[in-house]
Amino acid sequence: MAALDNDPEPLDFATLKAISGATDGNLGAHLQTLEKAGFIAISKEVIGRRNRTWASLTVSGRQAFREHVSFLEDIIHSTQTMRRT
């Protein structure tokens, strides 16, 4: 989600795999779950004899991701505040 949020263009499976360090199966499972949740859109393209899979964030996916990041930042800030007192 972070990689997709950082790039306005769809990213292909190989790029996402390289960024995440995930295996084919693990990345595929995550993408399926995110697609079912409506957070990403998957498109496929045939180039020569090979299929190429592209992923992009949906509007609701981008919003959900940013809300999640904000939630994590709130936790970090509240933890830092608690340690200072």
Rank of each mutant, 00 (worst) to 15 (best):
M1Q: 01
M1L: 04
M1E: 03
M1P: 02
M1D: 00
M1R: 01
A2T: 13
A2K: 15
A3E: 09
A3G: 11
D5W: 11
N6E: 09
D7F: 09
D7W: 08
P8K: 14
P8R: 14
E9M: 12
P10G: 03
L11T: 02
D12N: 14
D12C: 08
F13A: 02
A14H: 05
T15H: 05
T15P: 02
L16C: 11
L16A: 08
L16Q: 04
L16R: 07
K17V: 02
A18E: 12
A18T: 05
I19W: 05
I19G: 01
S20Q: 01
S20L: 08
G21A: 07
G21I: 03
T23H: 07
T23K: 11
D24P: 01
D24S: 06
G25F: 10
G25L: 11
N26Q: 09
N26Y: 12
N26T: 12
L27S: 01
L27K: 03
A29V: 04
A29C: 03
A29R: 14
A29W: 09
H30V: 07
H30S: 10
H30N: 13
L31P: 01
Q32F: 11
Q32K: 14
T33Q: 09
T33V: 11
T33P: 00
T33H: 08
E35R: 15
K36L: 04
K36V: 03
K36Q: 08
I40L: 08
A41C: 00
A41M: 02
I42D: 01
I42R: 13
S43T: 15
K44H: 10
K44T: 11
E45T: 13
E45F: 06
E45G: 01
V46I: 09
V46M: 12
G48Y: 05
G48K: 09
G48C: 04
R49W: 07
R50M: 02
R50I: 01
R50L: 02
N51K: 10
N51T: 06
R52M: 08
R52G: 00
R52Y: 05
T53I: 13
T53R: 15
W54K: 00
W54M: 06
W54T: 00
A55N: 04
S56D: 02
S56N: 06
S56A: 15
L57Y: 10
L57D: 03
L57P: 03
L57E: 02
L57T: 04
T58V: 06
T58H: 03
T58K: 06
V59D: 14
V59H: 12
S60L: 11
G61D: 04
Q63E: 07
Q63T: 08
Q63H: 06
A64I: 04
F65S: 01
E67S: 11
E67M: 13
H68M: 13
H68S: 15
H68A: 15
V69Q: 10
V69H: 06
V69L: 13
S70M: 09
S70A: 13
F71V: 04
F71G: 01
F71K: 14
E73H: 15
E73C: 12
E73D: 14
E73Y: 15
E73P: 01
D74Q: 15
D74T: 13
D74M: 12
I75T: 05
I76K: 14
I76H: 11
I76Y: 11
H77C: 04
H77E: 13
S78D: 10
T81L: 06
M82C: 00
M82I: 00
R83L: 14
R83H: 10
T85P: 00
T85L: 11
T85V: 11
T85S: 08
